[in-house]
């Protein structure tokens, strides 16, 4: 019997997760509520079945997530009986960080990067699972599965540990940490296929529906609540749209689509000519901007 590529990817991800649980003191799974997180969580449940997940989930909330994401998160936690830690950067919240006022760069840095570092320090997590994939972005392609971070949470792309066979080096000194990416070798299409095959629940925002959007700087932004200031002449209109990635609603572009079933989404993905991160405003802040963010501690 030959394993299919999805079976091989599944086995690899499960192997990685078990290795972390065997070697880490206090692991945590970053849960971003997106489709990749849904797949990662599903794999984790398989990896440790019949035991309960041997680590909590951590959601670094920015207070600007889509409302449907938060509903889905809380449903998932109830349905699967999970431990969830939610962290919002209290300094950022106190300063009233607002992507519409302060811009995407500051919002992302304060609420996501700083918020994440705070949460890891606060709870003393020494290994954090993330759902990033190598096919997402150029600088991700060179990241290790076990990606070492200094006590200051910095990534040094020039000084990464060699990673051979299935042997992952999880050793570190006190204060240092490791980010682990079990989905490194999955592509967007693999993720969708696996969701389809395993019937994994995902946030309804991935499916096309009529939603209120405005067109801004060439990106369709959904008006998810009344905190979004409208520019003169801007009028939200109802469009049949869906999202290829999910994050903070002001930073996440929708695509016009009629795909309201998984096969239809996969059909679009197979035929699409635009990569999924294009909807993310953050990647275009500057050349190699993702690499810089990652060095600073962004996931």
């Amino acid at each position: 019997m030959n394993l299919t590529h999805l079976q091989r990817l599944e086995a690899e991800s499960i192997h990685i997760m078990r290795e972390v649980v065997a070697e880490a003191d206090n692991p945590v799974m970053l849960y971003s509520i997106g489709k990749d997180s849904s797949v990662m969580l599903h794999l984790a449940i398989k990896a440790f079945y019949p035991a309960k997940l041997p680590f909590p989930l951590l959601h670094v909330d920015t207070a600007w997530k889509f409302r449907e994401m938060i509903e889905f998160r809380d449903d998932t936690v109830r349905r699967l009986n999970l431990d969830l830690v939610v962290h919002v950067n209290p300094d950022g919240a106190a300063r009233g960080i607002d992507p519409f006022v302060h811009g995407t760069a500051i919002h992302t840095h304060v609420m996501k990067t700083e918020g994440l570092k705070q949460a890891l320090d606060l709870y003393g997590f020494d290994v954090a699972f993330g759902g990033a994939r190598r096919d997402e972005e150029k600088s991700r392609a060179k990241e290790r599965v076990f990606s070492f971070r200094s006590a200051q949470h910095r990534w040094d792309p020039k000084n990464q540990r060699p990673e051979l066979w299935r042997l992952y080096n999880a050793r570190k000194h006190k204060g240092e940490s490791i980010r682990v990416f079990p989905l490194s070798n999955w592509t967007e299409l693999d993720i969708w296929q696996y969701i389809h095959l395993e019937r994994i629940p995902i946030v309804p925002l991935y499916f096309a529906a009529r939603r209120p959007v405005v067109q801004r700087d060439g990106v369709l932004i959904m008006v998810d609540d009344d905190r979004m200031p409208l520019h003169p002449g801007e009028l939200p209109c109802m469009k049949q749209v869906r999202f290829r990635t999910l994050g903070c609603y002001p930073l996440t572009g929708a695509v016009e689509s009629a795909a309201d079933t998984l096969p239809a989404i996969i059909q679009e993905t197979l035929l699409t000519t635009t990569s999924e991160r294009q909807g993310r405003v953050i990647d275009r802040d500057g050349d190699a901007s993702m690499e810089k963010k990652k060095q600073e501690g962004y996931f």
Binding site: D135, K138, A141, K142, K158, T187, E291
Partner: peptide
């Protein structure tokens, strides 16, 4: 050639993983 520092040197200095799929294989 992914990373900014490498681009400036014009050489690849680490291992990078790429993915593609045809009708027969990933």
């Amino acid at each position: 050639d992914g990373l900014a520092a490498e681009r400036e040197q014009g050489i690849t200095i680490d291992v990078a993983y790429r993915f593609f799929t045809t009708d027969r294989r990933k």
